[in-house]
Design a protein around this nucleic acid. Structure first.
Lengths: 227, 227
DNA sequence: GCTTTTGCAAGAGCAGTGCTCTCGTTGTGT
DNA sequence: ACACAACGAGAGCACTGCTCTTGCAAAAGC
């Protein structure tokens, strides 16, 4: 059974190697990942790859999960490195942006338009929440420390009830409007990074994009009452 | 020469028809537009399409320009339908969102991740600015009417100078921080629509997405001083 | 020990893609 | 009427995702 473990380990290594080469292809050749090209780089027949991933989409899904985890981990580490909630908030933003600038095609994979034959399996749901959870935890900390000064406008309407439902997942006494502000901040974070990465800022802000980004992050922090 | 006009007109009609069928394919089959499939639908050989578009990318570029113009026009009309700057602002947002919900794949084309062999030709630059110009014009109007109440935080650093440079294109006496707020609002608008369209809101805000969106738009309007 | 089952890799093959080239045809300007 | 440019169709190239069959080596059962 040691041999069996060996077999499983070799399989795990092979799986990881395929993902690694695929990531490299994604980074260099662009978004249209070719399974055959990956197989060629590994010196194996294209059909052999199907022993490890049932389809190209499944490979992409694996890459998506890894990407969510990678950017989520960076965000969590950045948050842990600061004491003040507002600084945590901004640090999360910079961490996400830095990761996206370093891995633009992986960013496009997770926060860009869904891939052609798009399908978001359940496996991606949990890793996808790490960044927004880091933001939410920052707000919760600020709230616990009495660091939340001003408050965003009260949500009115049915979506307010949905915010309440989300708030209850974070524990008692979390105001719905702060959940709204957290979601607002997350949306703006994704929007700002995507705008920079996808060329929406071209011929506008070309020099000090980091400064402009930080200005935006501080604005969203202030919207959540973190100053 | 009347015959020449006829030839040119037939060519224009054919070009438009190809784009129309391509848009339909984009809407139904998804993002991976197949030139051959479009040709089949038109009852022509795939090679004949190349008489009208030099490549698949060129077809996509044409669709991108049209999409920018379409959403831009909707935004401008929505703005024109209101008097109060804050209402103009929200109306622009809803117009853009409505268009995106009606044409999700076209939205992905212009504001999603760039297409695989991506290239943003110069032709797309001008149409791409219509939405943000509509937002900027709204701010300018509010400023002229003395409707700008509070102001966003002053941008500090090099990007502040870049904002000044942009502000000068809009005319004299336009404060840089308002340009920043306009860009901020545009980025959030794109982020909010993309988040909704690309599934980032799933298992969170599922019911009253319109309400949540409007709440966000009013927040960005307030950030620009429009209330 | 040997046999059977399983996991894996390779190759051929299918249907599809973007794109090029050639070859007739048809309409246009002189 | 003639030369020329525009056009459509077809064949073909290199590529893609994916399936199926074949052969081989490692694990499992007796």
């Amino acid at each position: 059974m040691k041999a069996a473990n060996l077999r499983a380990r070799v399989r795990a290594e092979m799986t990881e190697e395929i993902k690694q080469v695929a990531r490299r292809h994604l980074a260099t050749d662009g978004a249209d990942l070719s399974l055959r090209a990956v197989a060629r780089d590994l010196g194996m027949a294209s059909s052999a790859v199907y022993r490890y991933f049932a389809s190209r989409d499944e490979l992409l899904t694996a890459l998506i999960i890894d990407a969510y985890d990678a950017v989520g981990q960076d965000a969590e580490q950045a948050a842990a490195a600061h004491e003040d909630p507002a600084e945590k908030w901004v640090a999360i933003g910079h961490a996400v942006r830095d990761w996206a600038l370093a891995n633009p095609h992986q960013w496009a994979l997770i926060y860009g338009s869904p891939v052609p034959g798009y399908q978001a399996p359940r496996d991606t749901v949990v890793p996808a929440t790490r960044v927004i959870f880091a933001l939410a935890e920052t707000i919760r900390l600020g709230l616990a420390d009495g660091r939340i000064a001003t408050v965003p406008p009260q949500p009115a309407g049915r979506f307010g009830e949905e915010l309440v439902a989300i708030a209850e997942q974070f524990g008692p006494d979390v105001p719905a409007h702060l959940v709204g502000a957290g979601l607002y901040g997350f949306i703006h974070l994704c929007g700002a990074v995507s705008a920079e990465l996808f060329g929406q800022l071209n011929n506008g802000i070309d020099d000090d994009r980091r400064g402009f980004f930080e200005w935006q992050m501080r604005a969203t922090a202030a919207f959540a009452g973190l100053s």
